[in-house]
Nucleic acid binder design. Structure first.
Lengths: 236, 236
DNA sequence: CAAAAAAACTGATATATATCAAAAAGAAAA
DNA sequence: TTTTCTTTTTGATATATATCAGTTTTTTTG
């Protein structure tokens, strides 16, 4: 499969203001992106593979990407759903390790690639960028702490509610109707976020439906009773 | 309960070379630690509480500290066992949030406290320190990714093996006999690392014993058959 | 469009693990 | 030392969830 090259100028990039590069000066940005390449990925393609060495960072321009780790029995655990403006693949680069996760597009996605050296150079030059990344990493560590605790303590039924609320919060904005979560997530993907078996997830969605908490048609899930879901999630 | 003040000079601190402050110049170190206070904590005391605002960072000088998050049903999930030379409580400070976790001593521990402003000042001045912390945060995110996946996918029996191997690797060094893990962890604590019920953990330890994988007396657990444990852990 | 493949769903069954309850052992305190 | 409290252990039971197997539906592809 050959991917189309695309021409995207950072200067007039529409997602830049949402991205971590919003804080960069124009000259810093130009320097960093001098060698960048932008590529149109089709759905289901892999940006980088778990266990491989980072060669650069990926900046998403439209489309969604699932970031997951594969367990020893071949089951995937989804760690993050990355979206518009998100930067991927820089952490392993900074910590100088192999990628601990795989990144795969959930839909057709345009992705800019910045080679390692250019990114590192900019990071070295811009204490603002490195400070921002440090801050974000610390924040994410807090978030992961919570995920870990939920996973260890909450039953699946509660975790699914947490997940749906999170998805609605994070991705509900660009959904057609308000309150609906429409990402190209298969039931299996959803199960791999929650950390459960696909069949269990399907049954629980069915239950939620019967209880009037959600409605669903195909992959579109609409939250009908947010308060009820919060109650099921057993948070606060 | 009143804690004793202790006088510890960073310049001749024996754990400094293991700590993140090893990279600081002497003048930077002096500046940062000018207002530091060192305190002798007794076992079971809390350094900081989940949900409170960070006021400074804690540097451990001997002793072990458990870092945990409390779930909504009151059960704790232990995220980390901090030891000699470890720095605690800086992440929430950097991300400008409340503490997502509680830190509590597992044994009598001497702890140096550096007020927020001094630490932040040093961080701003030392790009080396901030780079180091960024690198560590990125590394820890990778580690947490793995923990999360294990928690979601591995059965308790495997997770316990993983935990024992990890404890042996990380804390086995300062144990009296080789290969033995001796930290002041109650069975409940151990269960709260693995993410299971105390009774289940006790039964599994019993099984391991019968299988000749470990020996235990009181809180001292000795790994007898590391290869066997690795097999049970189902890694690699 | 038809054919093939993937995903979604339903049902039956097994089991790992949690929960509850109570006894025994050990540690701390008076 | 005796008492009290905490921790550890054992047993019985319940149940949430995984697993397996098969069908239906949807999506993809040639």
């Amino acid at each position: 499969m050959k991917n189309k090259r695309v021409d995207l100028a950072c200067e007039q990039c529409t997602v830049r203001k949402f991205s971590r590069f919003a804080i960069l000066q124009n000259d810093e940005l130009n320097e960093m992106t001098y060698n960048k390449t932008c590529t149109a990925y089709k759905k289901g393609q892999v940006l980088f593979h778990e266990g491989t060495r980072p060669l650069g960072v990926f900046c998403l321009h439209g489309g969604k990407v699932k970031v997951y780790k594969t367990g020893y029995d071949g089951k995937d655990q989804i760690i993050q759903i990355a979206k518009n403006g998100d930067l991927l693949g820089y952490r392993a680069m900074i910590s100088d390790e192999m990628y601990p996760v795989t990144a795969e597009t959930l839909e057709d996605t345009t992705v800019c690639f910045i080679p390692k050296n250019d990114f590192i150079q900019t990071l070295d030059d811009s204490s603002e960028l490195s400070r921002l990344l440090l801050k974000e990493a610390c924040k994410d560590l807090g978030v992961m702490t919570e995920s870990l605790t939920n996973l260890a303590q909450k039953p699946v039924r509660e975790r699914l509610a947490v997940t749906l609320l999170m998805l609605k919060d994070t991705y509900g904005v660009d959904a057609v109707e308000n309150g609906s979560v429409e990402i190209n997530l298969t039931r299996e993907d959803l199960a791999n976020i929650v950390g459960t078996a696909t069949e269990t997830l399907i049954r629980l969605l069915h239950d939620y439906k019967e209880e009037g908490l959600i409605e669903s048609k195909g992959r579109k899930i609409k939250v009908m009773d947010e308060k009820g879901l919060v109650k099921v999630a057993n948070i606060y």
